[in-house]
């Protein structure tokens, strides 16, 4: 099972905001799921860094994907046209040679 956690930002903002302003985003690496509540215009770098810190990963070794498309730190839910409840996938770097 995935441990459900609230992001610090989400926990600090318990009061209801207009749905258009904030959305809940699930970030999962298939082992862990982390929920974030962020503004539509917030850069996703915040979220990505928070996830890496929490999971003890370095940004170099992970890839954030939204529906298969790479997510850049400068992207925002708006720029990716994300909806409430959408999921960001986190993948570990893959290598191969032999």
């Amino acid at each position: 099972m995935s441990d459900r956690e609230q992001s610090p930002g989400g926990a600090a903002n318990p009061e209801e905001q207009p749905k258009t302003e904030h959305l809940n985003i699930k970030v999962t690496d298939n082992n862990n799921e982390v929920f974030f509540k962020i503004k539509r215009t917030t850069q996703l770098s915040k979220l990505m860094n928070a996830f890496c810190e929490r999971q003890g990963k370095t940004m170099q070794n992970v890839r954030f994907l939204f529906d298969g498309a790479r997510v850049n730190p400068t992207d925002s839910p708006d720029s990716l046209e994300m909806d409430d409840g959408d999921t960001l996938e986190v993948h570990q770097e893959q290598v191969g040679g032999a």
């Binding site: 890839r63 790479r70 993948h91 770097e93 893959q94 290598v95 191969g96 040679g97 032999a98």
Partner: peptide, 13 residues
């Protein structure tokens, strides 16, 4: 650098 010369997903993509 990893001396193996294995490509990562970033380069492939």
């Amino acid at each position: 650098d990893d001396r193996s010369g294995w490509l990562n997903d970033e380069i492939i993509a």
